[in-house]
Design a binder for these strands. Sequence first.
DNA 1: CCAACATTGGTGACACGTCAACTATTTCGC
DNA 2: GCGAAATAGTTGACGTGTCACCAATGTTGG
Lengths: 153, 153
Amino acid sequence: MAKTRWLTDEQQCVWRTYLLMSKRLNAALVRQMQADSELSIADFEVLVALTDTPEGRVRYAELARILTWEKSRLSHQVARMQKRGLVERRACTEDGRGAYVAITERGRKAIEQAAPKHVETVQQLVFDKLSDDEAKQLQAISARILEGLDCPD
Amino acid sequence: MAKTRWLTDEQQCVWRTYLLMSKRLNAALVRQMQADSELSIADFEVLVALTDTPEGRVRYAELARILTWEKSRLSHQVARMQKRGLVERRACTEDGRGAYVAITERGRKAIEQAAPKHVETVQQLVFDKLSDDEAKQLQAISARILEGLDCPD
DNA sequence: CCAACATTGGTGACACGTCAACTATTTCGC
DNA sequence: GCGAAATAGTTGACGTGTCACCAATGTTGG
């Protein structure tokens, strides 16, 4: 291996600040979600994806694609959510292998309650802190980093 | 609750791009660490903290403070790392309740091997993509968001 | 001194994510 | 058609993180 390009002091500072921010921001969102609703972030994402579809139901593989989750993760997650009555499995007549995930009334109620508080939290923790310019910069930087990121999806 | 301040389209775009980036960047780092070493990110963080101390050993509570981890998380983590010979527990003579976590030779070797590749990955995935200005912006934005973040530490 | 209280750390149950292996169905080449 | 390969989803084992509770030791006020 060639000589290591160690981080400069400035780079270390950038990197550690970013890491800390992203960890704490995420932790804060998890805490808020848990405090204000019966949902986890993962539950929330699944329910959002389901309400975004006209029928309120999607095939597993499609849902996994939307969320960019592994299929087995989705399988476990849906099994847990089903136990709590947030979603249902439905047989798929077109394809004997497949199945639908459908949102239930209880699931719909849960997300309708959770969404406003979650959005408000994002506003408070992120956008209230940043100028319009900074928000644009954050997007540009995120997009730049995303570009080269090989994602095995 | 007052009327919800929903996200504007631009805000949604910023937010989703940031979320995706931070998730994928993290996933890429985990993959690289797993591919190039026998360590997880958590292992790595613990070993870094240990090598940062002159003695190569720290009390549990202090280590938890350094990492801003919960004590029980650290306890589980150290137990697993101990099984793999990366760290040792040592009795604390000054305080019968306490204990030290100490890095082993095996642990030292592991981190010395893992660090260069990890740093190189951070360079490639982050700093090679960003101009100096963008790096500064990222730091400023992260710091800004961190400011108001109540952290229960 | 000794009874409350605080502190240090550990433990068990559970939620979550990944990986590898599996079953059942469909599709495709011949 | 039919057997091989692809596809849909499941399962079990394991690493990991959190929470609530526990044990042991130390500290402190009367």
